[in-house]
Design a binder for these strands. Structure first.
Lengths: 224, 224
DNA sequence: AGAGTTTTTGATGAACTTATCTTGGTAAGC
DNA sequence: GCTTACCAAGATAAGTTCATCAAAAACTCT
């Protein structure tokens, strides 16, 4: 999952970036409103953390622009505790959730998980696909109850696929959502990771559709 | 589906071509207004992505000429964020949708899907024909709920036929919409693909009309 | 700072898709 | 009823895409 953080306070920004990185997100950061607006406009994020008090362009304005441009990416806004009115205008502008500063990092992570989950149209917190389970909170995957040891990028790949079970996902999309901004596109990393994942979770769980992409097979619908 | 991209910025052009290619379109590109106008005039596209700021002939002018020549192909125009007035004149010239640069590639794809769908007079996201279903986003086809494994070209062929259920589609039209510009016309590839499709989705779903073309049979209207 | 992972890269070989060719069948026209 | 044109089907060949491996580079953690 790929996440954008728009926050002008350097300390908090760094703290957020680190926490979300540890939680398995590919993280991009913006220090002011202009940069934040630009990034959110151009890159495909799965969730955005947006501070309201920003230099150059205000958070609410950014959000309004994204929404009027048809962007549906889930956005969580951060407000100071005393800025009560900001919160309201944030929601009016189309925010999906808010959090008042200061906050517990754990709570932020929980809310983000909920947002990502809802955006993908899932009801349950844990992702499932046959006897393959993934707990985004614990960053743990199990096959038939047995834990599988995955490295961080293997986990990212699996997480994205499990949010899109049954869909044929192009390699380019996987790259966009697993890596952050500056990544060299032309490489075979995805193939290598798919290979490793298959070795760990079972060969025939991920099928490749030549020329199109990869597909996580749902045994229920008996995918492909 | 066959798509024309008219865009003068080389980076964006390549990026677009790649993304649309990944999404299963047959893609032609034009780098300036003259080439774009010519291609759109002579080749039958299903959708066009048109930048407004172009060398030689401006995008709005191209669009006006196409429209006054009776072309109804859906056109999505790209505008820079600050060119507010361009957007308006683009609509006046007959654009079907617009997107301001920079943009999410996924949003562009979603809008193109919507355009193609609308142009073919469909309401539901998934294409249906009897118990044959096709989800263009997931690139998955099912017959009576059972998934059918199709290769990328088989998928393109079926997609086009499903957008024109019941119509007798000439082989030449299929070739034009499945392949891009430079393709040797004199070959029997389409016959071969129709044969393979029939084998996978059922023999009597596609009927051949001698001397005219192929027809995807809709059980409702009991086609043919 | 160094050892152990993890990630990336590059190369090689295998697998698959697609295009072409050939042969045989089927419908239309005379 | 015969000829001709068009279409179906199978086999083959070519070209592309993908999988796998090994090794180098980057990163972590002590």
């Amino acid at each position: 999952m790929r996440c954008l953080i728009v926050e002008d306070d350097p300390d908090l920004r760094r703290q957020l970036a680190r926490a979300l990185g540890d939680a398995g997100y590919a993280v991009d950061v913006a220090a002011d409103g202009e940069e934040g607006h630009f990034l959110g406009d151009t890159e495909p994020y799965d969730v955005v953390v947006l501070d309201l008090g920003l230099p150059l362009i205000d958070g609410v304005t950014i959000l309004e622009r994204w929404r009027s441009a048809g962007k549906t990416v889930p956005v969580l806004i951060l407000t100071a505790r005393d800025r009560w009115s900001e919160k309201v205008s944030g929601f009016d502008a189309g925010a999906d959730d808010y959090l008042t500063k200061p906050f517990h990092m754990e709570e932020l992570l929980a809310r983000l998980r909920a947002l990502v989950r809802r955006a993908a149209g899932h009801a349950t917190p844990a992702l499932e696909c046959g006897d393959l389970r993934l707990d985004p909170r614990a960053q743990r995957a199990t096959v038939g109850g047995d834990p599988v040891k995955l490295t961080s990028h293997e986990l990212r790949l699996l997480t994205y696929l499990m949010h899109h079970v049954g869909r044929v996902v192009p390699r380019s999309e996987l790259i966009e959502h697993i890596y952050d901004q500056d990544f060299d596109r032309d490489s075979n990393t995805i193939e290598v990771f798919v290979g490793r994942l298959r070795k760990k979770i079972g060969q025939d769980r991920i099928s490749t559709v030549r020329g199109l992409g990869y597909q996580l097979i749902d045994p229920e619908t008996n995918g492909a």
